Amino acid sequence: MGTHGDSIWRDGEQRAWLAWNKVQLRLSYEVNRRLQADSELSTADYDVLAELVGSPGERLPISVLANKIGWERSRLSHHVKRMAGRSLVTSAPAQTDRRVTEVALTWRGRRVLEEAAPGHEAQVRQLFFGGLPPELVPPLTSALETIYAHVVEHGTLPPPDC
């Protein structure tokens, strides 16, 4: 509601937003809970590892990694320290530029991710796609990609391809 009781929402927007919010909160809870139970990874751990495994040399500058997963660099730095303590990643000055901190996947991080991936993917398919008719996947994908591009363009974090 606006300051004088006037709604700022257009037709259906509030309902769509509330539905999205409920889905993402509940799905995040369920995915995180399953990852923790199956592999002792958090969703945040999984996101970091998955981004690294798909990167050249399985390593990225910490600022690039932060932008790719949509985190502030300081938050990622703290999280990477905890992950390094569990031998999932390493964090060190880059060989090409010692001023840049680089995060790299370890053999243990790769193994834990590979072991967690099948259960994670099965759960996502069951919970996210299980209730969605196949013909709605393409328009949903298009809508989410459009929203993401808009958030990147108008948000405060640098674009992920920096």
Rank of each mutant, 00 (worst) to 15 (best):
T90M: 05
L65S: 04
E102F: 03
R33F: 08
R75E: 13
R26S: 12
S87V: 00
V89G: 05
R33Q: 13
A94D: 13
T101K: 15
Y29D: 12
A44P: 00
P61A: 09
T106P: 00
K68P: 01
V100W: 04
Y46W: 13
S77Q: 14
T90V: 10
A92W: 01
V23Q: 11
I69N: 05
L76W: 01
I62E: 13
V48G: 08
R26P: 04
D45H: 06
N32P: 05
W71S: 05
R75K: 12
D47M: 13
K68H: 02
E30M: 08
T101V: 14
L60N: 14
A84R: 04
K22C: 07
R73P: 03
V48A: 06
E30R: 09
Q36S: 13
E30L: 13
V53T: 15
L76Q: 08
S63A: 12
Q24T: 09
N67G: 09
W107A: 13
S87F: 00
L41Y: 02
H79F: 14
Y46H: 13
Q36K: 15
R34I: 07
R82P: 01
A37N: 06
Y29L: 14
P56C: 01
V103R: 14
S77H: 12
W71Q: 04
V64Q: 12
D45G: 05
H79N: 02
D97G: 11
L52D: 09
T101S: 15
S91I: 06
L41P: 01
G54D: 08
S39M: 08
P93I: 04
S77V: 10
T90I: 10
S55F: 07
S74G: 08
P93H: 06
G85A: 03
T43A: 12
I62M: 15
I69T: 01
R82H: 03
R34K: 11
Q24S: 07
E58Y: 01
S87E: 00
A50I: 12
T96K: 14
V89C: 08
R98I: 06
A84N: 01
R75I: 08
S42K: 02
S74L: 06
D47H: 06
D38G: 12
